[in-house]
Amino acid sequence: MPHIMTWLLAAMLSGCSNAPSVYAFGSYFPSWLLCAFIGIIGAVLVRVVFVYLQLDDVLPLRLLVYLCVALIIAIVTSLSFFST
């Protein structure tokens, strides 16, 4: 029985490794923080484009739309640069 528990514990901990991090400003930052920042900046740029195209006024739930845009950009950034 202890042999099975050892294998089970090893299987559960096999995904644990060093967290992906980015070296910036003399310190290591987690990659999700960089991806969130890029997502927020991307959503702001999308909003500027929507305002220029006059699409911002017709959006039904602006906050939800821009939150989803930021999330999509952050996830795509994470999958593009930090997936293994």
Rank of each mutant, 00 (worst) to 15 (best):
M1F: 14
A70H: 04
V51K: 15
A24M: 15
L55R: 06
L59K: 07
F25D: 15
V65I: 07
L33F: 04
A70R: 02
C16K: 00
V69M: 03
G26T: 01
V46M: 05
I72Q: 03
V51P: 06
L55E: 12
D57A: 10
N18W: 00
M5P: 01
S80H: 06
I41L: 15
S78W: 08
G26H: 04
F82L: 01
C16V: 01
L64V: 13
L8W: 06
W7H: 10
I38L: 14
Y23M: 09
V76C: 06
V65E: 06
L71V: 14
V46A: 00
S21I: 02
S14E: 00
F37W: 07
S27L: 04
L61D: 08
A11R: 06
L33G: 11
C35A: 15
A10C: 03
Y66E: 01
L64Q: 07
P20N: 00
F37S: 14
R47I: 00
I4S: 11
I73A: 08
L63K: 08
L63T: 04
P60I: 12
L79N: 11
I73V: 11
L64I: 13
G42A: 14
T84D: 04
M5K: 15
S14T: 01
T6L: 11
L8Q: 07
L63F: 08
I38G: 11
A10W: 00
G26R: 02
V76N: 11
P30R: 13
V46Y: 03
L9Q: 10
Y28L: 08
F37A: 15
S83T: 14
Y28F: 04
P60A: 13
V76K: 04
S27P: 00
M1E: 15
R47T: 02
Y66H: 08
V69Q: 01
G15L: 04
S14N: 02
Y66R: 07
W7Y: 09
F82A: 04
I75C: 05
L9I: 05
L63I: 01
H3T: 09
L59R: 05
M12P: 00
P2Y: 12
Y28M: 07
V58N: 10
V58I: 14
A36Q: 11
A24R: 14
Y52H: 09
V58A: 09
C35G: 06
I72R: 02
S31P: 01
L64R: 05
W32D: 13
V76E: 12
N18R: 02
L13M: 10
P60C: 09
S80N: 08
W7N: 09
S78D: 14
L34M: 10
A70T: 03
L33C: 09
A36I: 10
L45M: 08
A24C: 13
L13W: 02
S21A: 09
I75V: 12
Q54V: 15
L67Y: 03
M5G: 07
M5N: 11
L53W: 11
L59I: 15
V22N: 00
F25L: 14
V44A: 12
V51L: 13
G15Y: 03
